[in-house]
């Protein structure tokens, strides 16, 4: 073909756990379209959305084995393969979205994209997944004290349970599919997620208080199989990285729009959105983060350096 550099043709699957209209999925599709366009269809990537090929941890193994060529996953399951990515699960390591992205665009985080190579992946780009916030059924969370007596569903992983406990609540790990009915029946009194997922999961229909405490910012990552990547021509490798990097702007734009839309929908539905000062929450978890610091000292230093 005239576009791109090599002559090899590729037909790939990109495994995506989010549904088709989710902003991240739309960014994957944008990336795939760009690749197809710029190589005259020589690199043809199909986005397999909605978790058709399995959940994120499942798909990560499939990429490792070479069954699936690309995937977009949260850095949370990646931390089970490369420890360093566990830093994103620590509460309040980033002051805000700008701080996160100064870090992600910096040399250290870009180097982390290559650290996954030993496990069989090449990281191409980070994507935005917003901030995770608490939402509750009975009473609003305005300060850490309000978490007392609350059973909050968190992501699997001890660090997430410890985080809620540090703030005074009780962290519960539970299958995502059971969260909706558990909020209704009172098995749990709350959960936590970003705005788009809070709305699309329907959890807002039961848990009507949404507290924007932004306790975690866990970015996502676009990856390709390392074996496959290494077998490509240099021009193709270059193009893949380039288009992936360009897709970040597209993804963040789509993400911001979706967050705004979700908030509008929350307000329409009479959801009480509580904007809190995060300092108290941050103080409550400071010791916990400090204790973990030795595990992540290098990356934590880099995160601190990315502060203005």
């Amino acid at each position: 073909g005239s576009g791109g550099g090599g002559d090899d043709t590729y037909e790939w699957s990109l495994a995506e756990a989010h549904p088709k209209d989710y902003p991240t999925t739309q960014a994957d599709i944008w990336f795939a379209d760009q690749m197809r366009e710029r190589t005259d269809g020589r690199i043809d990537i199909e986005v397999m959305h909605g978790g058709q090929l399995g959940e994120e941890a499942d798909v990560l193994e499939q990429v490792q084995m070479g069954a699936v060529e690309m995937t977009r996953v949260s850095t949370s399951p990646v931390s089970e393969v490369v420890d360093e990515f566990g830093v994103f699960a620590l509460p309040y390591v980033f002051d805000d979205e700008d701080h996160l992205w100064r870090f992600l665009e910096g040399d250290y985080a870009q180097g982390m994209l290559d650290d996954v190579r030993d496990s069989g992946y090449v990281g191409l780009a980070y994507y935005e997944a917003g901030a995770r916030n608490f939402y509750t059924v009975d009473e609003p969370i305005e300060s850490p004290e309000d978490l007392e007596g609350q059973d909050i569903r968190v992501l699997p992983g001890t660090v997430n349970v410890e985080m809620v406990e540090a703030m005074g609540g009780s962290g519960v790990t539970m299958d995502y599919g059971e969260v909706y009915s558990s909020l209704e029946s009172g098995t749990i009194t709350g959960a936590e997620n970003n705005e788009p997922s809070y709305v699309s999961s329907g959890h807002y229909e039961t848990a009507e208080y949404y507290t924007r405490d932004a306790h975690q910012r866990i970015p996502e990552i676009l990856m390709v199989s390392a074996d496959l990547f290494d077998s490509m021509s240099e021009e193709d490798q270059e193009l893949l990285r380039e288009v992936a990097q360009e897709s970040i702007a597209e993804q963040r734009k789509l993400w911001d729009a979706e967050v705004e839309e979700s908030i509008a929908e929350m307000e329409d539905s009479g959801i009480e959105v509580i904007d809190v000062e995060t300092e108290e929450f941050q103080d409550a978890t400071a010791d916990m983060v400090e204790n973990k610091r030795s595990e992540y000292s290098e990356v934590m230093d880099a995160i601190d350096e990315a502060r203005e």
């Binding site: 549904p19 088709k20 209209d21 788009p196 699309s200 329907g202 979700s262």
Partner: peptide, 20 residues
């Protein structure tokens, strides 16, 4: 109701479909 398959459908169909 409640049916977790229905929730899965709602997610696949997009945010315009209310689970309730």
């Amino acid at each position: 109701p409640p049916s977790h398959n229905v929730i899965m459908y709602a997610l696949a169909a997009g945010s315009s479909v209310s689970i309730g």
